[in-house]
Structure formats: structure tokens, C-alpha cells
């Protein structure tokens, strides 16, 4: 299943491009909850954790929760009425928002059926989840805060020139701007290309396991948000991601038999390679992990 040709998902460039298709997202994430359960921690967070100095790999879950709290603080979401999580995954952030940080309503959107079902199974009246593309999201009320943890990866298709990528990111930021209350904050986490040449971007992605997804450069994101959001803070935490991949790899190896029983040995081998490859990328800084705090610009100049 995971070896399906990536070209199957390639779409023509057009103005209405909404990012990674549902088919591609389901190809990656609907390998099933059972496979990811084998090697992710209990939060099922499939994104970079936030580690403290001297912490061992066994602290993965603590580091994941610390990451959630970091973004909740950064987006000033504590005690807010309505918070949107774009690309909500298996819902750990949604739960954290309502269970620990007193948020009245946490709304998640995802393109993965397996993830939607998982979030619905919480049966928490303060959590809503929608199986839809962010571009199709039409909230009835505005949000106090928006969170996007490793969702920008799915906003552009592979191999676009820089100007087209910036357009796609701008489209994303325009939507966020429209959904957010005046003075609202947004916290983003995303992988960005750094110490590598654009002609090698594609080469990097052929070793990836995400079809139809590409990474931004920091410059593209900074350009795309002009006159929509002001940047308040940017952190580069690539070492956090190297450790996270290392923790995942170690757990996947430890439970290899269980993983193979769910998805077969080829898929497991592919994920192991992908995790090792990512470790090298974050270790050398060819890719970085950006954590960005942004505040809505309420009076954009024309």
C-alpha cells in the first residue's frame, strides 16, 4: 500500500490548489491507528516533541505533552473560548486544550478518516472534529487562537517553484487571518529546508513517506505572511526532532514484530529508513524544525 506510485496523486497546478489531497493523507495516516500505536507514545503525537536537557528517550511522552503546552502558551489559547487545530492528528492537542487549559471549545480538522474516528471516540462535547480540507473550512464563529503543528508540510504540492509555493502558503495564511479574531495569535510548527540547495529538495523527498507534501523554507513563510501576520518569535529546534525520530526508531525496532504483523516488513523497513534519514537531516541542519508565534495584523495596509 505504502509503495503506491507517488505520481498517482500528482495534481495539475491550478489556482484552487488546496494542498495535499485526502487520498494522499489517507495513504500516509490511514496505515492505521494500530501501526502508529506500536511506536508512537500514548499521546499519538506524530510530530516533534520538546525535550529538556539530559532527558532520555523514555521521556518521549513527557516531551510531547511539553510541546503541546508550549504551543498552547504561544498561541495564548489558555482559557480561550474557541481554538482551532489545523491537522489535528489523533487529537492529543484538542484534549489538552479542553482538559487542562480550560478551553471551551476545541475544533480540529483533518483529512484522515482514522484520525477523525479516533477523535470522535473521545465523546467529549467540548471537542469537535471535521473531516475536511482547511480550504473548505467555514466556521460559524471566529477563533481566539489557531494552532498548526506540522500541517504546512501538506499545504503545497511537490516540486513547485518558490513563487508558487509562496502563493500557496499565502492562501493558507489568508484563511487563518479570516478565521481569527482581531488580536488573535497563531502558533505553528513546521519542518523547513535550510542548509541544502533547492535542486536537492526533491531528492530529499523521494526518501520521504509522505506523498504530495513538500517543505517550506523560512524565507517563503516569512514572505507569505506579509501584511497578514506579524512574526513575534521563531525558534529552530532541530535537535528536538533528531531526538524525537531517535525515540520513535528505537520503539519501532523494539516492537518490530508487532509492527510487521500490522503492515508487513516492507512498510516497516521503509519507515525505519525514513526515520534514520530524517535524523541525519536534523543532525546536519539540512532541514530544521521551526516553531513560530504570529499575531494577526488587524489593519493590514492596502
Amino acid at each position: 500500500m505504502i509503495h503506491r506510485n507517488h505520481e498517482v496523486f500528482t495534481q495539475a497546478t491550478d489556482q484552487d490548489y488546496k494542498g495535499t489531497s485526502a487520498e494522499a493523507i489517507q495513504y500516509h495516516y490511514d496505515d492505521g491507528n494500530d501501526f502508529f500505536k506500536v511506536w508512537l507514545d500514548n499521546t499519538m503525537a506524530y510530530t516533534c516533541a520538546r525535550w529538556e536537557k539530559g532527558e532520555g528517550l523514555e521521556a518521549l511522552e513527557t516531551a510531547q505533552i511539553r510541546k503541546l503546552d508550549f504551543h498552547i502558551n504561544q498561541a495564548k489559547a489558555k482559557g480561550a473560548k474557541r481554538v482551532l487545530d489545523i491537522g489535528c492528528g489523533w487529537g492529543s492537542l484538542l484534549r489538552r486544550l479542553v482538559e487542562v487549559h480550560g478551553v471551551e471549545k476545541a475544533i480540529g480538522i483533518t483529512l484522515s478518516k482514522a484520525q477523525t474516528e479516533q477523535v470522535k471516540s473521545f465523546r467529549n462535547p467540548r471537542i469537535e472534529v471535521y473531516l475536511e480540507n482547511w480550504a473548505d473550512h467555514h466556521p460559524e464563529e471566529l477563533y481566539d487562537a489557531i494552532l498548526g503543528i506540522e500541517v504546512l508540510e501538506h499545504v503545497v504540492q511537490v516540486g513547485l517553484p518558490e513563487t508558487e509555493k509562496v502563493k500557496a502558503y499565502r492562501n493558507f495564511f489568508e484563511h487563518c487571518h479570516k478565521w481569527l479574531k482581531p488580536g488573535g495569535w497563531m502558533s505553528l510548527q513546521t519542518i523547513v529546508y535550510d542548509n541544502m540547495r533547492p535542486e536537492n529538495f526533491n531528492e530529499f523527498l523521494t526518501n520521504e513517506v509522505f506523498p504530495e507534501s513538500d517543505h517550506a523554507t523560512l524565507a517563503e513563510l516569512v514572505k507569505a505572511r506579509e501584511r497578514l501576520f506579524e512574526i513575534v518569535a521563531i525558534r529552530n529546534d532541530r535537535q528536538d526532532y533528531e531526538l524525537t525520530c531517535k525515540a520513535w526508531l528505537s520503539r519501532l525496532k523494539k516492537n518490530r514484530t508487532a509492527a510487521i504483523n500490522v503492515v508487513g516488513s516492507e512498510v516497516v523497513a521503509r519507515y525505519e529508513k525514513y526515520l534514520k534519514f530524517s535524523m541525519i537531516g536534523f543532525h546536519t541542519g539540512s532541514i530544521n524544525l521551526a516553531r513560530i508565534a504570529m499575531r494577526r495584523i488587524d489593519k493590514p495596509c492596502k
Partner: peptide, 9 residues
């Protein structure tokens, strides 16, 4: 035993 894939760097 386990060897870090980043060792070569």
C-alpha cells in the same frame, strides 16, 4: 548493538 545513523556526520 545500536549505532546512531548520524555517526558518519
Amino acid at each position: 548493538y545500536e549505532v546512531d545513523p548520524t555517526l558518519m556526520y
